[in-house]
Design a protein around this nucleic acid. Structure first.
Length: 546
RNA sequence: GCUCUCGUAGCUCAAAUGGAUAGAGCAACAGACUUCUAAUCUGUAGGUUAUAGGUUCGAGUCCUAUCGAGAGCGCCA
């Protein structure tokens, strides 16, 4: 919540303390339509002797704060509150300034995770959208944020590609990214079906681990081509990363790490492989029997790298649901191995499917490149309104791809339905963009009349919108503390919808009283600011016109 | 076989830390445009929260069982 509210809840918690009750007071949205917020902490004490006295003290404190206009008490102990608009209009701006807090945390966002040699495909969309949004949200509330793409640039997949190039006698220098990208599926299939190929790939993998000069050169070329292609895609999709660290960057740390684990009796030999001695079921495999490394080996080394070179309070791994066992093992291992005592959290999300609930595929059954989904969406929007310029359609396309993803709780699987998500009505990226364009235009038209607001003149529609705008902090906090952007995405729809009602309800150009006009413009302005703040938290760029 | 996640309106989803009468959006039906952009707004209808028990002042939310769906389960990442 905004600091205005937080100061009050702190002092209300203190009231409970006076009666020896350990209650952290917090607001919920009111269930009663005439009120904005409610406090439920009192309910469980409604049979206590001191109930009336406690409730009275609480109400007294609330009244002295001026934040609320009315307080409605029920004999059950629910307190319903309606916001004091004329007071809050001077307190709340819904910009970043409202949410700065003292104890900032340094958080690493580990997301994206593309592999070199493979195209960015629809499977990457959710980690990119959720990762970017959480990064922006935490940045907005004043945390120190660092994103790391966690590039898959090492291990068997790379060895497979190189083996393929070798077997077909292809010179890497003449390849571009699109040619490179069709090689991986072929190499992967040969690895599965061709024993000779498989043996050679494993040899190459080992040689790479031993820094074979020739192979490293080929590897570097592959990496260079891939990164250029990724950067091009990210430019279109509006993604940025602070660090482009890959698995290869931590490779050198692994031998020493393993040595220490052996020395400290944290791992033991098991048919040539190393397993953790931690009592878990299943047992945690740290290295393979041929001595080569696994997913968890590099992830552990990455943690060492980050704690030594970057430093952090918390790391969020924005990765698919299906990898929850891996993260359970990773987090448990890093404690068991005494690496550090910092926070690590797996921000899991469900699978993205097509509109029928099936895995996203291209027409010929391959994995669908993200770029292709972007293009299809772009064309669809262009058909609806072909008078828009390229940059605007691109922004709208990204809005659709982002908003449709974030409107759903990240934990569940979701279906991407192009027709539904480009609809102008409903909870779509298009609708929220349209609403803020309307507001922008309105303010542009009325610029000359914009004067200082001293007192708000509000009808019911105005009040509803304004109340919701003042509650931005409530939804921001919910999204930030649960790392769930959908609370803010839904909030953006709510305020957009309320703004459209406000817009249709009373024409500003028909109002003569300058006080009344300023009041309307104040609300419009606050809506626009709020909409922009939420969009920035979600990773959506507002368009100027549409 | 073992472990985890989930089951809410015809469809897609909300309801954070247990709180009052479970909310939205689509689709359906009925309305409002010589417009501050109708790419909008208004209204109607739609529910035994999978089922059966339990915990308590109070359960969609916590516990147990059953049914159903999905995912994962040491040498891929």
């Amino acid at each position: 919540m905004n600091n205005v509210f937080n100061n009050l809840t702190d002092s209300l918690s203190a009231e409970f303390k006076n009666f020896d009750l350990d209650e952290v007071v917090h607001f919920s949205l009111s269930k009663l339509t005439d009120y904005d917020l409610q406090i439920n902490n009192l309910v469980k004490y409604n049979k206590a002797r001191y109930f009336n006295e406690l409730q009275e003290n609480i109400i007294k404190k609330i009244n002295s704060s001026e934040i609320f206009q009315t307080v409605d008490e029920s004999n059950l102990g629910f307190l319903n509150l309606s916001l004091n608009h004329n007071f809050l209009m001077k307190q709340i701006t819904n910009t970043q300034n409202d949410f700065k807090h003292n104890k900032s945390h340094k958080i690493i966002f580990d997301y994206g995770g593309p592999n070199i040699g493979k195209p960015l495909h629809v499977g990457h969309m959710r980690t990119l959208n959720i990762g970017r949004s959480l990064y922006n949200i935490h940045s907005f509330i004043g945390n120190e944020v660092i994103s790391d793409i966690h590039l898959g640039d090492w291990g068997m997949p790379i060895a497979q590609i190189i083996t393929y190039l070798e077997s077909k006698n292809i010179d890497i220098k003449i390849l571009d990214s699109s040619q490179l990208e069709i090689i991986y599926p072929k190499a992967s299939e040969m690895y599965k079906n061709n024993l000779e190929f498989r043996d050679r790939a494993q040899v190459i993998n080992k040689l790479l681990n031993n820094n074979d000069k020739n192979l490293l050169q080929i590897w570097e070329s592959i990496k260079k081509i891939s990164i250029a292609s990724l950067e091009e895609n990210f430019k279109i999709l509006n993604h940025n990363f602070d660090y482009w660290l890959g698995e290869s960057d931590v490779n050198d740390l692994i031998p020493g790490m393993i040595e220490d684990l052996i020395k400290n009796n944290k791992v033991v030999d098991d048919e040539g492989a190393l397993i953790s001695v931690e009592d878990t079921d299943p047992k945690i495999l740290i290295t393979k029997s041929d001595g080569s490394y696994l997913y968890i080996t590099t992830d552990l080394a990455t943690i060492l790298y980050r704690q030594n070179n970057i430093g952090y309070d918390k790391t969020l791994y924005i990765v698919d649901n299906r990898q929850s066992l891996h993260f359970k093992q990773l987090f448990s291992s890093l404690k068991f191995f005494n690496f550090n005592d910092l926070d690590h959290e797996h921000i899991a999300y469900g699978t993205l499917n097509d509109s029928k609930g099936n895995p996203f595929k291209t027409r010929d059954g391959g994995t669908k490149p993200l770029r292709e989904l972007f293009n299809e969406t772009y064309i669809y929007i262009e058909k609806i309104n072909n008078s828009l310029d390229h940059s605007t359609i691109s922004k709208l396309t990204n809005s659709v791809l982002t908003y449709s993803d974030l409107i759903t709780n990240r934990k569940t699987d979701y279906k991407f339905d192009l027709e539904k998500f480009t609809n102008v009505n409903g909870k779509t990226g298009i609708y929220v963009q349209y609403s803020q364009v309307r507001a922008r235009k309105l303010l542009g038209n009325s610029e000359s009349q914009n004067s200082e607001v001293t007192e708000l003149i509000l009808n019911d529609t105005d009040k509803q919108l304004l109340s919701r705008l003042f509650l931005f902090g409530y939804f921001l906090e919910q999204s930030a503390s649960l790392n769930e952007p959908h609370h803010l995405a839904n909030y953006l729809y709510e305020i957009s919808n309320l703004f459209n009602q406000f817009y249709e309800n009373e024409k500003i150009s028909d109002i003569n009283d300058p006080q009344h006009v300023s009041s309307k413009l104040f609300i419009t302005n606050l809506f626009l600011t709020t909409s922009n703040s939420v969009m920035s938290c979600l990773g959506i760029t507002p368009v100027d016109k549409m």
